[in-house]
Design a protein around this nucleic acid. Structure first.
Lengths: 188, 188
DNA sequence: GGTACTGTACCGTCCGGACGGTATATTATT
DNA sequence: AATAATATACCGTCCGGACGGTACAGTACC
């Protein structure tokens, strides 16, 4: 009796709107009113879904972490496992997360959080460190593997700051190169 | 009656204090009062040096850019020039900038700016893009060179978010590795 | 006495969040 | 089946506090 996929939940729309505001006005100017308006909801409506501003930011981070995690495991499974596959999956997850929305949806959450309350990042920190340890420490060429992962990370983060060191074609070439290089690492 | 070098100017102390606040409370909670107090100065004193908050942020960015630029040219000169030397100098500049103060002085400026008013980054963007183009586009192995530079950048930016994927010894090993790798690139 | 700088007192605005109200949907009771 | 009770989703208003910025009265050295 309802079209399940086309109908985004208000909660989801609010998170999108929040990221939009951050991208447009800066993470420090993230206000509840702006978010509410962007989602076509009143301020009271917003506060129904997220009791406090902190809860909104936490929601942003949670969604980001879930997406990252999901993409990673999906890609890893698709690649069949192995040390190099893990590196590739991690890179793919980063890239995918970045291209989800118009304005670099994923990692903007991190900026929003760090701007308003750095302590919110505790969970994310733990998670990311765990990922790195799992992927890198188990790899026979840890330094080279980490180099590739950090390069992908660097590109994403530069994007967040609007610093485009590569135009679109160069970007995808670079991505391909990263993935190919990850495939060429010594596996044992 | 004054020791010339140990006496930092009030202006300088204010910029330091601003970064300290950002590191501690998040870029969004950067207030003039907090900065003034951190620098041991009254609010009026701060506003004498920086007419507006935007001016303060601009000051932060300017100093960061100057430091980056200075370290880069210094290192480049020390290394004697050449495509690989440029890559190495860039990486060294990034690392040096990061280790200037206790809390990752350099790149925190960027976060502070992007949080309060993203348009402030225009100059920085131009500068960074120019650097990349100069260093990378002129290099016979552009993709690999960029990979190394972005890896360094990624590590720095992760640090800003407090995500430490490497403990101190591993870090310096990683830095050494990056620089060594940059030295091994094909030069023509 | 001028220049460089400090300290205080204050104003207008904006924001987070609390609160009470409303309308619809779901469930329970009889 | 009708009614009552409860839950869900949202709206509009208001307030206290914080923040950026202004004004001005110093102070200290040259």
């Amino acid at each position: 009796m309802e079209s399940p996929p086309p109908e985004r939940t208000a909660r989801e729309r609010l998170l999108d709107a929040a990221l939009h505001v951050v991208a447009q006005s800066g993470a420090g100017n993230l206000t509840l009113e702006a978010v509410a308006e962007g989602a076509g909801v009143s301020k009271g409506g917003l506060l129904y879904h997220f009791k406090t501003k902190e809860a909104l930011l936490q929601g942003l981070l949670d969604r980001h972490m879930r997406q990252l995690e999901a993409t990673f495991t999906r890609e890893l499974q698709a690649l069949g496992g192995g040390p190099n596959a893990a590196v590739q999956a991690y890179i793919k997850a980063l890239i995918a997360c970045e291209n989800l929305g118009l304005d670099n949806e994923g990692s903007l959450s991190v900026v929003a959080a760090v701007a308003n309350d750095p302590t919110l990042l505790r969970d994310l920190r733990r998670e990311v460190q765990r990922s790195y340890r799992e992927v890198v420490a188990a790899h026979p060429e840890p330094l080279r593997a980490m180099r590739l992962m950090l390069a992908a990370e660097g590109l994403v983060l530069m994007d967040i700051f609007g610093i485009e060191v590569l135009d679109p074609e160069q970007r995808s070439a670079f991505h391909e190169d990263l993935l190919a290089e990850a495939g060429r690492l010594r596996e044992r």
